[in-house]
Design a protein around this nucleic acid. Structure first.
Lengths: 142, 142
DNA sequence: CGAATATCAGTGACACTGAAATTA
DNA sequence: CTAATTTCAGTGGCACTGATATTC
């Protein structure tokens, strides 16, 4: 028998505070590099696509409104981490991809993160991490 | 063996998106009552204390800066859901407690939430909820 | 014309830091 | 005087909706 059965309220609260703590630590960690967690997430997601990606696809993947994607991309372009281009196939579309600088930043963050997010999740074994991920996926899950 | 072992990055991302989705649903649900999730959390926490509570204690319990507690309390006072008073023992302190209206709102939210947050966590059994709560506590843990 | 794409403008919700006032 | 408590002022992060221009 695990501990008592928590109310959904408690679980929601735990999710909230835990997430906040992690983001806070991560924010602090990214500070010297001049980007925010939200910017990092966007940059990383663009890189994840592998090819130049359209704004809508990026927004969908990030789970945010298209208008919001415009803003975060604009910030990253201003810092020279993302480059915009035309979509050859559809002149309404704009595509973005990481610049060499952008890729360098991703690399450095990955390095740095080994000592932070990893540290925040240090209390958990690999099996527990897998279990946690599984539970979370099933909550949001389709 | 559960699924593959996720990177801490993935887990952090899952935490982020899952929490965001829940908050979004909850926000939508609270809308007709005129309060936000953050306000609800503060109101609920004040009520949780049982007695009039000092600002600092509230801030600590919520895990936010004292200045931030001032703001959210002020919003709730403006709506007549919290009442402020003097701390008899320390004239520097201010204490707050829910008004009858505040308690009524908490009751109604509790009702409503049975059909929302609960719904968001519907995919999980009681045992899984307990497991999730346990894992989250150990992350934030000590 | 109707639908999709991206953007502009304004706003909301939530938290922070640093400085000031009051009282212990 | 030093320390604790709260508040004021300004700001940052991140996301939203509604309206608009362009192109399919």
């Amino acid at each position: 028998m695990a501990s008592d059965i928590p109310t959904p309220e408690e679980v929601a609260d735990l999710l909230h505070t835990t997430t906040r703590r992690i983001r806070h630590a991560f924010h602090h960690d990214l500070e010297p590099m001049g980007i925010t967690p939200g910017q990092w997430r966007a940059l990383r997601t663009v890189a994840w696509f592998g090819d130049p990606v359209r704004m809508s696809d990026l927004a969908d993947r990030l789970g945010i409104a298209r208008r919001s994607a415009t803003s975060v991309v604009e910030e990253l372009v201003a810092q020279g981490l993302l480059a915009r281009g035309d979509d050859p196939g559809d002149r309404r579309s704009v595509v973005v991809e990481p610049t060499p600088d952008g890729r360098r930043v991703l690399e450095e963050v990955r390095e740095r993160r080994r000592r932070t997010t990893a540290q925040a999740l240090t209390g958990l074994s690999n099996d527990e991490l897998a279990m946690l991920a599984d539970l979370l996926r099933r909550i949001g899950g389709c």
